[in-house]
């Protein structure tokens, strides 16, 4: 089963890369071929948010059960979320350079991803500042939950402050990308494929961390 899933991930992502670059797309004003970036950039942002809320979910589970495995899961998910957050920032700012003219211009979307980066950074800073394992698990769980309840406020705040250039159905209706069916198919498969890739990497990371934990408790 697992083998099958990993092959499926390989096939889906390969297909997304090939079709994403090759398949003709409808003419989109001001973006043109650059609109293809969304096949790869949007899944990155989506996974960094997903991983953040998964981490929060495992934190809640940890506080409820005090099962150390949940802390491992929460930490692993946060680490992967951090990776994808960096990738989303890098790909996004490259895209911004060519369609808006500068790598970083504090667009609401860029601000949001920046805040997510800050939260991940603070979470790891907190973890490295606590020595005792139980304390570390407990306090970082509490912090990730507190951070997660404040994040949804940006949904209400951001549209009030500045207008966005980001092509998005929620924030900016003028810049909306009208996808035709083939584009939508590639886009959705990209989302599915990258999400599966994330889950697979998460599984690997969790297994490695569990081994590490076992080793540590054996040597103690």
């Amino acid at each position: 089963m697992k083998n099958f899933i990993t092959y499926a991930i390989f096939v889906i992502i390969s297909a997304v890369i090939i079709l994403g670059l090759a398949l003709p797309i409808p003419d989109i004003p001001a973006l043109g071929d650059k609109a293809r970036v969304l096949y790869f950039h949007v899944p990155m942002s989506w996974i960094s948010v997903l991983a953040f809320f998964m981490s929060m979910w495992y934190s809640i589970r940890y506080l409820k059960t005090r099962d150390h495995n949940y802390d491992i899961k929460s930490y692993s998910s946060a680490q992967l979320g951090f990776l994808f957050c960096i990738l989303a920032t890098a790909t996004g700012s490259l895209w911004a350079k060519f369609s808006w003219g500068s790598f970083w211009n504090w667009d609401p979307r860029q601000t949001s991803i920046f805040i997510l980066l800050l939260i991940y950074g603070a979470y790891f800073a907190l973890r490295s500042a606590i020595e005792s394992e139980d304390q570390r698990a407990k306090l970082s769980s509490v912090y990730s939950i507190i951070a997660a309840v404040t994040v949804p406020f940006f949904v209400f705040i951001m549209p009030r402050i500045v207008e966005s250039l980001h092509p998005d159905p929620i924030l900016n209706t003028q810049g909306k990308i009208n996808m035709d069916s083939s584009m939508l198919t590639v886009f959705l498969s990209a989302l599915v494929g990258f999400t599966m890739l994330y889950l697979w990497m998460l599984d690997l990371k969790i297994r490695a961390e569990k081994l590490n934990y076992k080793k540590l408790s054996l040597t103690d």
Partner: peptide, 16 residues
Amino acid sequence: LYPVLSFPVLLPLLIT
């Protein structure tokens, strides 16, 4: 650590 941890949490409030 204190400003590092509180800044991202406070940011939605500060902006508003």
